[in-house]
Design a protein around this nucleic acid. Structure first.
Lengths: 240, 240
DNA sequence: CAGTGGTCTAGACCACTCA
DNA sequence: GAGTGGTCTAGACCACTGG
């Protein structure tokens, strides 16, 4: 593990423990470099991780401070901010899956473009109902290329796909595009999620890629408006 | 302007011009350092900007490549990914505002916490209907502290608050928390956005801060499900 | 003014890919 | 094995904050 990641973890742990308040700044970068026996650049890279998470912010000429509103995230139920599958998201809750449809077929034009596939590259096409503590939660409709995620059978689907990819295939999940929208309920929503005409649905369309840039998942996830929201943090970035 | 930002802009411009395809990698970092007469670390910082925007990705031992799905973003109408106000978002479209409510009052407990205010710190509380090309688009309900954004009158509200902050107050917008959810239409939605019972609404609740960490906006923005979605890109980051 | 973060350099070693 | 990106160093200068 890279040194700056280790330092980032340690600093985060200290912040979560309440070592630094939002009034008193963290030790300055030179001091931190001495404390962790490293260079200032490495400290800056470590602090950058926490800044990107929204945990701290830096003010030139002044210092580095802990943000006040860390608690904001915990107030909301479903956070889809990381690339962990939903199975691993709900700490302390049992998440199970029911496979509603499972099929292997050839991709259409849009899927070929979004997943970067040739005409003959088969894809899995499956729909899963995700259940938390015996209560229906969301419906996931996923398209995945067979050549990128081989061996994806119904047994794996009932468990965690992301864990299968990490532990069995040894793949690292990379970036994700997400489009978030509200939608009217469709027949699946009505049948499995107790939605009626007046029930707004929250839909997330996403393309997820491996660390090497290969797209491996194109999916639509839907839940009732009262069964989850999405939390996003946007740090400041130079405009290009 | 920092050198790495300049280089990032130049590289982005070249990529947008189609200089590099997704098959052939960009020049390697050492070559780029020579081309831009700088060090490799600076090149890496510049490339990092493009990686965070989802424009390119790097593969250790291989090279740095342009992503295939750059066009994904342009397919969707409303992108709320940057900290520009909506006035500046719709290129080539006329965005106007109608102030539906405007008030100065004392903050409640939640607002005091989210905006980091004392009991006596007054806040603006206003509702604006945003109109694109004569068609109602979204409703923004905003709370802003008077002491952070002084001089916010109805004249400014009808124009661009963000531009006022940048150009008149000289403030730099920093980070933002956003919670995105689907919701049932309320009376405002029905009255001004042509919503009925079966019209799902997309709602964005957000806290926006200045570069120095001071929160200055707590707002709810709503639009009809068919009048805008939200696009988010999540680059890979080490887990802390 | 002293102290802080922001940027930048030149060079080094390592991990990984791919022919 | 050559070439690539990932990390790290030690030191420097600048920009900004705040007493």
């Amino acid at each position: 593990m890279a040194k700056y990641v280790e330092i980032g973890k340690e600093l985060k742990a200290q912040i979560m423990k309440g070592t630094y308040s939002s009034d008193v700044p963290l030790p300055d970068q030179v001091s931190l470099a001495k404390i962790f026996k490293t260079s200032r650049v490495t400290i800056q890279k470590a602090l950058g991780l926490l800044i990107n998470e929204g945990l701290i912010y830096s003010k030139q000429g002044s210092g580095t401070y802990v943000k006040q509103n860390i608690n904001l995230l915990s107030r909301f139920d479903a956070t889809v901010d990381q690339y962990v599958g939903t199975t691993e998201l709900m700490h302390g809750h049992l998440v199970t899956s029911k496979v509603l449809a499972y099929n292997v077929r050839l991709p259409n034009a849009k899927e070929r473009e979004d997943l970067n596939l040739a005409v003959a590259d088969a894809v899995y096409d499956f729909v899963r109902l995700r259940i938390v503590d015996d209560s229906p939660w969301k419906i996931e409709h996923s398209i995945m290329p067979v050549k990128v995620v081989p061996g994806l059978n119904e047994d794996v689907l009932a468990r965690s796909i992301y864990r299968y990819m990490r532990e069995t295939l040894g793949e690292t999940i990379g970036a994700a595009y997400r489009i978030i929208r509200a939608a009217q309920p469709n027949s699946y929503d009505r049948r499995y999620l107790d939605a009626v005409s007046e029930t707004p649905m929250l839909e997330v369309e996403q393309i997820v890629s491996l660390a090497d840039g290969t797209p491996f998942e194109y999916s639509f996830t839907r839940n009732r408006y009262d069964k989850g929201s999405i939390v996003v943090y946007h740090p400041e970035r130079p405009m290009l």
